[in-house]
Design a protein around this nucleic acid. Structure first.
Lengths: 145, 145
DNA sequence: TTGCGTGCAAAGGTTTTGCATGGCA
DNA sequence: TGCCATGCAAAACCTTTGCACGCAA
């Protein structure tokens, strides 16, 4: 399956993403990385490879906001996610963070049993405010008056 | 509270969205509607109002895909949501559904206590496959076997 | 030679922004 | 008169697509 990407840039890209397993990266960041390395890859090429990888389930794509670029992340097929993992995005600093927690298995089970909804954890993003932003300022979600 | 939108177009827009509570709509569809009605509203104006409404928690914004326009939906501030409510979106039929459930209070509490993350339920959307689509067709979301 | 991966540039679509206008207090 | 909502158009941005080139089989 990974042999599919044994092209000049494809395997390089995949390897790069694999090394960053657990982190998110945008297309621009990917291009910047390879440019800085002295072996630039065209944006189109990156998008084309990522599209295939997403289709194959090797990479996940997250659309956080319409104006900001999509985030990609290596998930390696079924390899590493025995545990259910989620993401949360801080509405203040924009950070996207991984969450690995047993609690979420119960959430999945609850949604399935009581709401007949089969949750896709990899696509679901929690919105709110992260710890850093909460402490740095007395921020609350409370809407303005 | 709603007086904030007592402008020429603002309250018209808000009323239109309120009538469509529970459904989501794009900016283009909004503009098309008012254009067809004979009282067109500029795209910029719609975006500007929606931005404010989202900030105030009256309207939710959903970014489904980076290439397709964002979906907006009236959720009516805190008026009807004493209880914690979430949404889920079916990846198959595109339906967006409200969820009211006590279970989610525990989720919020868990995220805050164990992950120091202050969840904003109104902005958070669960992705997955709904009951109807599960029974009608095959579901391949299960990533672990 | 043929096929295909690649890169550049242009196109396409969404959203934001600058600026001038007009309504309302 | 002054403020602000509004609309138009341009800009900004992300992503896709068209096309030609060059490497590899």
């Amino acid at each position: 399956m990974a042999s599919k990407y044994k092209t000049r840039q494809g395997d390089v890209l995949l390897e790069f993403l694999r090394q960053r397993q657990g982190r998110h990266i945008t297309v621009n960041e990917i291009c910047a990385h390879f440019k800085a390395q002295g072996s630039p890859i065209g944006v189109a090429t990156v998008y084309r490879h990522l599209e295939n990888m997403v289709k194959d389930g090797i990479v996940n794509k997250y659309n956080i906001d319409n104006n900001s670029p999509a985030c990609f992340e290596y998930v390696g097929g079924e390899s590493h996610c025995e545990e259910v993992c989620f993401h949360y995005k801080c509405e203040k600093c924009g950070k996207l963070v991984h969450l690995h927690c047993e609690e979420f298995k119960e959430l999945c089970a609850h949604l399935e049993q009581h709401h007949h909804f089969l949750l896709d954890p990899m696509r679901t993003v929690f919105y709110g405010i992260c710890a850093e932003c909460r402490t740095s300022a007395d921020q609350r979600i409370k809407r303005r008056k």
